[in-house]
């Protein structure tokens, strides 16, 4: 731990939640800490260069909210969303990028989104764009399957943790249905019961792949899936075949979602 005047530099640690990271930012200002790295609890061990004892910063809802207010005051709602998206990107360096971005924002005291010459601003804009693309792909490629009890169920496994940002679209669109979108990679989902959306964790092994077992499905589900597949086939124009373009729009890793490719 290097001590120069009253500024302390060192490695910090938090619990891996968004509130936790904002608490870290709060304490950096409060205690005049300058982090060299910010680790998630279990990530320290994986980093060969990490010192073995980073300072653990406890998560405080209240501190997190004060930082949030600050972000919104200076950067507006847009800056806040950008930071939240950066966090959900699961990028290995997201913590330091966010810290750096907020340092710039709090010293500028006004939006900094045009300052692309700053690495943190550029990186945030890239991650936001990357998240935007993945959210958009979820809006497009999520496929609901009707279960026997009438619930519309869609398992997903997105590249980044986009469900908290992606579900609102489905809430708006499918307000008259009951549905659940489940992230099988991160093992949690959003369940809509016709009134409100709730975060749920299912420990059911049957929901562990994108194609659901037939016995769970409603009577007509497979027939509609078949109709959709037929439709997809008929709509193709052989004379225009252009697989390269096709793959650019739908990279193979997304095919698993698409009923028409099953």
């Amino acid at each position: 731990m290097a001590i120069a005047t009253n500024i302390v530099t060192g490695e910090l640690q938090y619990d891996g939640t968004f509130d936790g990271l904002l608490s870290v930012v709060f304490e950096c200002y409060n205690l005049k800490l300058v982090p060299t790295s910010i680790y998630q609890l279990d990530a320290v061990l994986k980093d060969l260069f990490a010192q073995q004892n980073p300072i653990p910063i406890p998560t405080s809802k209240e501190q997190a909210e004060r930082v949030m207010d600050g972000i919104k005051r200076y950067g507006g709602k847009e800056a806040f969303m950008d930071i939240y998206k950066t966090f959900l990107s699961e990028d290995p360096h997201r913590e330091m990028v966010i810290y750096e971005y907020l340092r710039l924002l709090f010293s500028a005291k006004k939006p900094i989104n045009g300052h692309y010459h700053e690495d943190a601003v550029m990186r945030v804009s890239q991650l936001v764009r990357q998240m935007g693309r993945e959210i958009h792909r979820m809006h497009a490629f999520v496929r609901f399957q009707e279960l026997a009890d009438g619930l519309y169920f869609a398992p997903i496994e997105p590249d980044f943790d986009v469900l908290p940002l992606a579900y609102q679209h489905f809430r708006d669109r499918y307000a008259a249905m009951q549905w659940c979108i489940y992230d099988i990679k991160r093992n949690y989902g959003m369940l809509y019961d016709g009134e409100k959306v709730e975060r749920v964790v299912l420990d059911n092994e049957t929901f562990s792949s994108i194609q659901l077992p037939t016995e769970l499905l409603s009577e007509k589900e497979l027939a509609y899936q078949q109709l959709w597949k037929d439709y997809f086939k008929s709509t193709n124009i052989v004379e225009r075949k252009n697989l390269k373009l096709h793959l650019r729009h739908v990279p193979t890793r997304y095919w698993k979602y698409l009923t028409e490719k099953w």
């Binding site: 252009n242 697989l243 373009l245 096709h246 729009h249």
Partner: peptide, 18 residues
């Protein structure tokens, strides 16, 4: 009601000709 149509439409799939 069911559904909405605002802003950008979404492509839910792409044919083999893109």
């Amino acid at each position: 009601g069911l559904g909405n149509a605002t802003g950008m439409g979404i492509c839910h799939s792409y044919t083999e000709d893109g």
